[in-house]
Write a protein that binds this DNA or RNA. Structure first.
Length: 874
RNA sequence: GCCCAGUUGGCGCAGUGGUAGCGCGCUCCCUUGACAUGGGAGAGGUCAUAGGUUCAAAUCCUAUACUGGGCACCA
């Protein structure tokens, strides 16, 4: 016998051990037909997993288990990402705590420490995924920096180089002064900050009036190589062609014309700093202006800044502004808010810097993914993400892939004096030195769906599993990762890496704020699992995982999910309590029932069951986990437990016989089938229950996943019986409501007589249901007049009179009836409005009219009964 | 500036043309032999605003407001 309450811990441990021993989640190329394949978004080896990972991986696991239950060969590849800058930053923090400098340690020793860290971190992360129940193919674990993946990276680099898609050049890049490296355009975030706009006077070289420029960053003026004005701007026309002097250093620069300059902005005169601004850089190229670096990679001003050389950006800014003011250069200072760019890894201000870097050309690589998108060969769920994805592919600039850090794939390029750079996968011999930089971590991530299956080798795995089926990730890395995997997939395999991308939201805190360590509002998934069980956490996340939407995470949701798990557990306990100790040979099977023997409740629950299962499966097919979770929750709790189990109790308490076995069969089969449908979301408790139930269900599969979904070999859908049942439920509810509102003690059994068109059914066929669920002592059809001193419950098709002499408070009863009457009248009004509408229509749908009429008539009948009753009472 | 999403009871969210739903919370009653991690009964929304389409709009269209996000620009 099961325990009274579900205890997750021992069950989870035992089930995990069982699945592992059976290698349940391992896949090999086999059979005909396409497999269902997912590659995990590899978590960075920066620490432990957070609640967002729990969401991401639970969704994937649900999809994978769903496919396995459908009988599709399914493979989910685990692994981690080395995480480039992010991981190096973690290590640097550790070193800092130990007061060790990375450079003092040296590159090799540093990398050795990184390897050790990575080993531990991978263990932690994979352990957490395992505990979450993620049915990953553990034998396929990959790492973005292991041997096979390194081969893929080098091969990709070399191939792109040979195709002319990789080049090295001096370009303006986003430079993070703190991380000491270049970043790509999408690794930069923008935030609006308050600042000032400084109007600065540049004197004329030959002593004239000069010109006034406006800038937010005066310190860049030491890198100015021109001042530009609009050719149509008459205010400055006289200055064009003249030279002006940069304050303090008196370096002369020309005043030039360019249509890019706008009249209204600032003073209409733009200082041009090609080495520190993207637009200025382009302007400089048009006019063949030199680029002078005023700020170095260390964030300090260079020699070009004359007296200010060596000062940090911040200090120099204050000093320069003070001096400009003191010496009369500053003509005006106005408040100005401007967008500053910040590093997505360390949040420090980005410096646009001219530097020599490696780039991947994007225009060519974007063509195939664009075509695939337009052809519908690649779809993003929800679909509204397709447009931003498309826009990004169309507009992106070349991808800067070199990083001036140590942790990553070293760029496979070698230099030697007097020789052209050599792209080589091997050390080319004496005299050659390798490029010190490493590749952007996203370069290797982009190859992930290829590399995990052995590319560039033509492996059996690659042939079988590629392209993968579905990619599940958050919208924050749609460009950073998804788009690039598609580019690489097309570039190297002529196929998209996956036809579907499922984009989910991020997990926020209960009030909708983003979780962050500094806000202290992070939720630890392990803690949730410890407290409520893994199934509860999974269900709580899934029931809120509406496509593409963020989740406001409230621990209360996990509590109610835990309650649901317990409900499931206890309903199973109930079913088992009502089964004989020795299972029936072959089990209680639906196909042994003759349909004519089913009671209304049986036919009803089977119809609802079929509907719920189908709806859950469809929702998972459509990548809507929340809808699947919701459908099963409602069915199991509100229909199966609240009504069917209660309705079946009568037969289960009765004598042995066919009736009892039918009830048992339906309980066993519906429960078994439902828990299978729930298994993708809550694998542990469903596996445990399945083990207890399967001898009775006549099943022999070792695990839920092995047996697959219940096969429905008969169409149980039955709208008629559903309608009938809802009338029964309405009748029961009307009596319960009466009892509650008139304060009839719950234990007190009462007598009732029934009248109306549905009274015969209620007092006959459905009598037992009404007696037990409404706590009735007796229920008879009304003969003659209504009983004296009685209260009245009016439901659709049936009116109950319940003698309550001595118990009833007639004032309360009148109040109650008046309320019901008002409701009935409201309903009538709504129905008639609808009927007026429909009859006014040229082509009123006949079924809609009939439906509305039936609704109105039911409401009318209820009103009449209520009016009669009220008349009798007054 | 352009684009996208959201705006539904106290809170968090479903609901793509036909009488407003769920979870949590709240009120009252109940330890009846699966479950108090439970059961029953209730209270509580003119579905952001203004127009429009339609016999009929939370649902479709247009505009506005607010919130969030993406992109671009910012001298």
């Amino acid at each position: 016998m099961l325990e009274k309450a579900y205890d997750p811990k021992p069950v989870e441990e035992a089930r995990l051990a069982g699945w592992d021993a059976a290698k349940l989640s391992h896949s090999e190329p086999r059979g005909e037909g396409r497999p269902f394949t997912i590659v995990i978004p590899p978590p960075n080896v920066t620490g432990a997993l957070h609640i967002g990972h729990a969401l991401n991986n639970t969704i994937q696991d649900a999809f994978i288990r769903h496919q396995r239950l459908k009988g599709v060969e399914s493979c989910w590849v685990p692994g981690c990402d080395h995480g480039g800058i992010a991981t190096q930053n973690v290590m640097e923090k550790q070193l800092k705590a130990e007061k060790v400098d990375r450079h003092a340690l040296g590159r090799d020793a540093f990398l050795e420490r990184m390897q050790l860290w990575t080993r531990d971190c991978k263990k932690t992360i994979l352990g957490q995924l395992h505990r979450l129940g993620a049915s990953l193919d553990w034998q396929r674990e990959a790492f973005t920096m292991d041997e096979p993946r390194a081969k893929a990276v080098y091969h990709a680099f070399k191939t792109l180089w040979e195709r002319g898609l990789i080049y090295r050049g001096e370009r303006l890049v986003n430079w993070c002064v703190r991380c000491g490296t270049a970043l790509s355009d999408i690794e930069v975030e923008r935030e609006e900050r308050k600042g000032a706009l400084y109007h600065i006077h540049y004197k004329n070289a030959d002593g004239g009036e000069g010109i006034v420029v406006a800038t937010t960053r005066p310190i860049t003026m030491f890198g100015d190589t021109a001042v530009a004005v609009n050719p149509k701007d008459r205010r400055w026309k006289h200055m064009v062609g003249k030279n002006v002097l940069i304050p303090f250093i008196d370096r002369p620069i020309p005043v030039i014309e360019d249509a890019y300059v706008e009249f209204e902005l600032g003073t209409g005169a733009l200082k041009v700093t090609p080495a520190h601004d993207q637009n200025d850089f382009e302007l400089g190229e048009r006019h063949k202006l030199p680029a002078i670096k005023a700020i170095g990679p260390d964030g300090k001003l260079t020699e070009a800044a004359g007296p200010y050389a060596g000062l940090s950006r911040e200090k120099a800014q204050d000093q320069v502004v003070a001096d400009l003011e003191a010496q009369g250069y500053l003509r005006k200072k106005e408040d100005h808010k401007s967008a500053v760019q910040t590093c997505y890894r360390c949040a420090s201000v980005i410096e646009p810097l001219l530097s020599l870097q490696w780039f991947v050309k994007q225009t060519e690589l974007a063509k195939a993914p664009l075509k695939a998108l337009d052809a519908g060969e690649f779809k993003i769920y929800p679909r509204n993400w397709e447009k931003p994805y498309r826009d990004w592919l169309v507009n992106m600039r070349d991808w800067c892939v070199s990083r001036q850090i140590w942790w990553g794939h070293r760029i496979p390029v070698w230099y030697k004096d007097g020789e052209k750079p050599l792209v080589s996968l091997e050390t080319p011999g004496a005299g050659w030195t390798q490029d010190p930089d490493v590749l952007d971590t996203w370069f290797s991530s982009a190859l992930w769906p290829l590399a995990v299956f052995g590319w560039p080798e033509k492996t059996k795995d690659l042939a079988y599993y590629y392209p993968t089926s579905t990619l599940v990730t958050g919208y924050e890395i749609l460009y950073l990762w998804v788009a690039r995997m598609q580019m690489m997939g097309h570039a190297f395999m002529d196929q998209p890496a996956f036809p579907h991308a499922v984009i989910h939201g991020i997990v926020r805190d209960k009030s909708g704020k983003k979780m962050s360590k500094s806000l202290g509002n992070v939720v630890d998934p392990l803690q949730m699992m410890d407290k409520y069980g893994t199934d509860a956490l999974r269900f709580a996340l899934m029931v809120q995982a509406h496509p593409g939407k963020d989740i406001a995470f409230d621990e209360q949701t996990v509590v109610s999910a835990r309650n649901f798990v317990n409900k499931l557990w206890n309903s199973t306990r109930f079913v088992l309590m009502n089964l004989p100790e020795a299972p029936l040979a072959g089990g209680y099977k639906l196909d042994k029932l003759s349909h004519c023997c089913l009671e209304t409740a049986d036919a009803w629950i089977l119809s609802r069951y079929q509907h719920a299962i189908q709806s859950a499966k469809n929702s998972l097919d459509e990548y809507d986990p929340a809808a699947a979770a919701e459908a099963l929750y409602v069915f199991l709790w509100d229909e199966f437990c609240a009504w069917y189990i209660e309705l079946a109790k009568g037969r289960l308490l009765g004598i042995e016989g066919e009736d009892k076995d039918i009830a048992r069969t339906i309980l066993v089969q519906v429960l078994t089938g439902s828990l299978k449908a729930l298994h993708p979301i809550m694998p542990f408790v469903t596996e445990e229950i399945y083990a207890a139930l399967k001898p009775y269900a006549g099943e022999t599969a070792e695990f839920v996943l092995k047996g697959g979904y219940h096969k429905l070999d008969y169409d149980w859908s039955n709208p008629e019986v559903e309608k009938e049942m809802s009338k029964v439920m309405g009748a029961v509810t009307s009596i319960r409501s009466l009892r509650s509102q008139l304060n009839v003690p719950p234990g007190l059994k009462i007598k009732a007589v029934a009248e109306g068109p549905f009274a015969e059914a209620v007092t006959g066929k459905h009598r037992a249901y009404a007696l037990s669920l409404a706590q009735l002592e007796s229920l008879e059809p009304m003969n003659g007049g209504r009983p004296a001193q009685s209260a009245t419950a009016v439901a659709d098709g049936v009116t109950f009179h319940i003698p309550l002499a001595g118990v009833i408070d007639f004032a309360k009863e009148r109040e109650r009836l008046a309320k019901d009457l008002a409701k009935a009248e409201g309903d009538i009004e709504k129905c008639e409005a609808k009927l007026r509408n429909l009859s006014a229509a040229a082509s009123a749908p006949a079924d809609k009219v009939a439906e509305a009429k039936a609704q109105r008539d039911a409401a009318l009948a209820r009103r009449d009964r209520l009016q009669e009753t009220i008349a009798v009472l007054s």
